[in-house]
Amino acid sequence: MSNKITLQEIKKVADLARLDINDDELSEISIQLAGILEYIDKLNEVDTTDIIPTFHTIDLKNVFRKDVVKESLPLEHVLNNSPQNDGETFIVPRII
């Protein structure tokens, strides 16, 4: 892996993460990220051939339960927190 992260790449990653970044921030962030990634390159010192990655520390198996209908949260309680709604749905800027 290379620790050179280009401005272009940061812009692409920001786009994937749905983050708008202005040009002032971009140069500062690129310096910080380059430093952090350079440090993280330390991981290359370790031979990990045949090592199984850990995504969870406890022995997790699929957890099943009966599919029983239960009461849901009242619609108005859920909508109450939204910046804009019409009492039945969330309102967002027009998509199409």
């Binding site: 991981l43 370790v46 090592i51």
Partner: peptide, 10 residues
């Protein structure tokens, strides 16, 4: 890679 080294730490 990080998740593999996590195994080694464990």
């Amino acid at each position: 890679k990080a998740s593999q080294i996590r195994t080694l730490i464990i």
